[in-house]
Simulated assay, not measured.
Amino acid sequence: MWRSLASNVLTLLIIALFLLGGLVLWGQGEYRAEGPLDGPMCLRVERGSNMTRVSETLLAEGAVTSEKLFRIGADYAGKSGQLKAGSFLLPEGASMEDIVDVVTRGGASTCGTEVVFRIGVTQITTQVTTYDTAENAFVVAAEFDPTEGTQPQEYSAARATADTRYRMVVAEGTTSWQVVEGLKAMDMLEGTIAEVPDEGTLAPDSYEVVNGAQRQALLDEMEAVQVLRVGAAWESRDPSVPVDSPEELLILASIIEKETGVPEERGQVASVFVNRLEEGMRLQTDPTVIYGITKGEGVLGRGLRQSELRGVTPWNTYVILGLPPTPIANPGMASLEAAANPDNTDYLFFVADGSGGHAFARTLEEHNSNVARWREIEAERANN
């Protein structure tokens, strides 16, 4: 009887182990299988949260089929204690294994709310963007001028949210004074700025910003990036370009930056200025005259007067020969590259063509014809 009982117990144990093994295999399959999400989902994980709260949220949102299996899988993978705070984008059909990986991997949030400070040539704006899972893209929830003192509710809510991300976008062609004024308007930054950096020494780009960051530290970062960019452009330059130092290359690039907003034109615009320098001609570019008036502090906001075109300043290239003594803005990498390696043309003139770009000319006669056409376009627009 005991032998029979032992045999039955052994049989039951084998069956139990077999069933348990099958259950484990089933659980692993379910954990790794495509999940029920029928579209992207933005999952927010609060600071101090845990896998239990996350699994409950996921079940309520229809992202997993079993909160218990989700937690067991995270425990089995040794990731239960690695949960990160933030807002994470879960793709359509994400498995439980995929979701555990996303919320424990760390790094920047991939959805949620982002505040973007844009420092432009003519204005400073603050945008509050949120991730729209239906559109699968960030959408602007609010936009305002931070220098006016009024803040929309969306911005206040974003500032009160711990995992809000911040980014600063500095446009190509901004002046150093404009960048400093923009940093002063960013109320999530701290610290004072000792002085406005030299013109041209700040790299226009998009910068991730941490809440409470020091304003001066951001300026230092931008200066370091620009040093690298100018150095790279100088090393790759065409040796026939008539500039004698990285500083002169930076000055030329800043003029190119202010003369055209059309990327495809930068090389042609650069060739005009290089050809004029080689011919001993004055550059005769309006942005240098404007800089002599404003010193980069704000926008002129009107057309130039004839007296200003004739006025003597160190930057007025209608009066001086060669390059002005300093840059007139902060150029981007594309303009630095254009200055270092301009197109090979025999153009000496250019004027607006009415399309946002310019008409280029080799002779004064061609240029005068282009100017006459531009005057006609201006007159037509004034009458409409």
Rank of each mutant, 00 (worst) to 15 (best):
P152S: 11
P152Q: 13
Q153T: 10
Q153P: 04
E154Q: 15
E154N: 08
E154F: 05
E154C: 02
E154R: 06
S156Q: 08
S156F: 13
S156G: 12
S156P: 02
A157L: 13
A157R: 13
A158T: 07
A158S: 10
A158E: 09
R159N: 09
A160C: 07
T161K: 12
T161G: 02
T161H: 09
T161M: 11
T164M: 09
T164H: 11
T164F: 11
R165Y: 12
Y166F: 14
Y166I: 07
Y166G: 08
R167V: 14
M168N: 02
M168F: 07
M168Y: 08
V169T: 14
V169A: 12
V169M: 13
V170E: 00
V170M: 02
A171H: 11
A171R: 08
G173A: 01
G173P: 01
G173W: 00
T174Q: 01
T175E: 08
S176L: 06
S176C: 10
S176T: 15
W177L: 00
W177T: 07
Q178R: 11
Q178Y: 02
Q178I: 05
Q178S: 12
Q178E: 14
V179H: 00
V180C: 03
V180S: 02
V180Q: 00
E181H: 07
E181L: 11
G182D: 09
G182K: 03
G182Q: 04
L183P: 15
L183V: 08
L183H: 08
L183Y: 06
K184S: 04
K184R: 13
K184V: 14
A185P: 10
A185N: 05
M186I: 15
D187S: 14
M188R: 03
L189R: 01
L189W: 12
L189Y: 05
G191L: 02
T192Q: 14
T192S: 15
T192E: 15
T192G: 14
I193E: 03
A194D: 13
A194R: 12
V196D: 09
P197H: 09
P197E: 09
D198W: 07
D198E: 15
D198H: 09
D198I: 11
E199L: 07
E199T: 11
E199D: 05
E199S: 08
E199C: 07
G200Y: 14
G200E: 04
T201S: 15
T201H: 05
L202I: 14
L202K: 03
A203D: 00
A203T: 02
P204G: 07
P204A: 04
P204I: 10
P204W: 10
D205H: 13
S206P: 00
S206D: 06
Y207A: 02
Y207R: 00
V209A: 10
V210N: 03
N211Y: 13
A213L: 05
A213V: 00
A213R: 01
A213I: 02
Q214I: 04
Q214E: 13
Q214D: 15
Q214R: 15
R215L: 08
Q216D: 13
Q216S: 14
A217G: 03
A217C: 07
L218H: 04
L218M: 12
L218Q: 10
L218V: 07
L218Y: 08
D220N: 07
M222N: 09
M222D: 05
M222K: 00
E223C: 04
E223H: 06
E223P: 00
A224W: 07
V225E: 11
Q226R: 03
Q226K: 05
Q226D: 09
Q226F: 01
